[in-house]
């Protein structure tokens, strides 16, 4: 393997990986707090991408500025979905039901997006998408760096929210143990709704960067969700740090395989690594072992 390929893999892993980390954090947060696996996360990313695309197309607003509109919009979408459907899921099959319900939500949105935008691929365009610069001998479009900065800013904000605020303390308590959190007077239901909103809102930013770095249509959501799920399972479901490490690691690995072997098989590495890791460590890299012994 040439040195520049490795450099490329490392840099891209950090740049692109952090954007995936942002989207995966939303997913793992929702799972940790609510025991809900949100299959619709993939289509939310695509929705975010389309929103940015449309805002730029019709109003000429730069996609980064447009985030001021798209992030709150997706936050509201998340709240609505949570209130309408997720809050009704109860009982022992809650998690299983959540997968299917969010899948249904996903199909609903996918069908609507197909009808509105057709199935032809589009891509967000801007000067930072077309222009590149040299980083350690490898060319990168500016969007990768801007996307990285955006992801870092938002992840930091999320981190501050979780670790520096009262609300964050309730969220972390709920992540650790929902029943105990409820017992010490935390309104777990409200925490859950807001977390779902936050978990969805981050897809607006992730979607914007995704839409600027990839041509997409509604069915891009399948590829996205399978990657995101792989990442959060690999990192350990409910583990925020795990999602970050797994995102960056997986994108790096995918790049390396793509260069050394063939891009055709690089996607597959994702899944093969997952299968191998889980056969060795069923709870994921940073997950906690869950077995009731009392």
């Amino acid at each position: 393997m040439s040195g520049s390929a490795l450099t490329y893999a490392i840099i891209d892993g950090v740049l692109t990986g952090s954007v995936y980390a942002l989207m995966a954090t939303g997913l793992t947060l929702i799972f940790g707090v609510m025991d809900i696996i949100n299959i619709a996360q993939g289509i939310f990313v695509v929705l975010g991408a389309y929103l940015s695309y449309e805002i730029q197309l019709h109003w000429g607003i730069d996609p980064f500025v447009g985030l001021l509109i798209t992030i709150p919009t997706l936050f509201v979408v998340g709240i609505v979905v949570e209130r309408a459907f997720m809050s009704r899921l109860k009982g022992p099959e809650k998690t299983a039901m959540s997968i299917l319900v969010t899948y249904a939500v996903s199909l609903l949105i996918e069908g609507s997006l197909n009808m509105i935008f057709s199935v032809n691929d589009v891509q967000i365009n801007a000067w930072y998408v077309n222009r590149s610069f040299k980083l350690f001998g490898v060319y990168f479009a500016y969007i990768y760096v801007f996307g990285f900065i955006l992801a870092v800013v938002l992840l930091t904000a999320l981190w501050a929210l979780l670790y520096r605020t009262r609300f964050g303390a309730s969220v972390r308590a709920s992540l650790a143990d929902q029943t105990a959190a409820a017992l010490i007077g935390i309104n777990v239901r409200r925490v859950a709704t807001i977390c779902f909103g936050i978990g969805t809102a981050v897809t607006a930013a992730g979607g914007m960067v995704f839409g600027a770095t990839n041509a997409f249509n509604a069915s891009s959501s399948y590829d996205l969700i399978s990657r995101l799920l792989t990442i959060i399972v690999l990192g350990g479901m409910g583990s925020l740090g795990g999602a970050l490490v797994a995102s960056i690691g997986m994108v790096m690995l995918e790049d390396v395989v793509g260069v050394v072997w063939s891009p055709v098989w690089s996607t597959m590495t994702f899944f093969i690594v997952l299968v191998i890791v889980l056969s060795l460590r069923p709870q994921g890299l940073f997950g906690k072992q869950l077995a009731r012994t009392a």
Binding site: L229, V233, L278, P282
Partner: peptide, 9 residues
């Protein structure tokens, strides 16, 4: 919960 995801993978 993980089983679901691994079957998808």
């Amino acid at each position: 919960h993980t089983f679901v995801v691994i079957t998808i993978a």
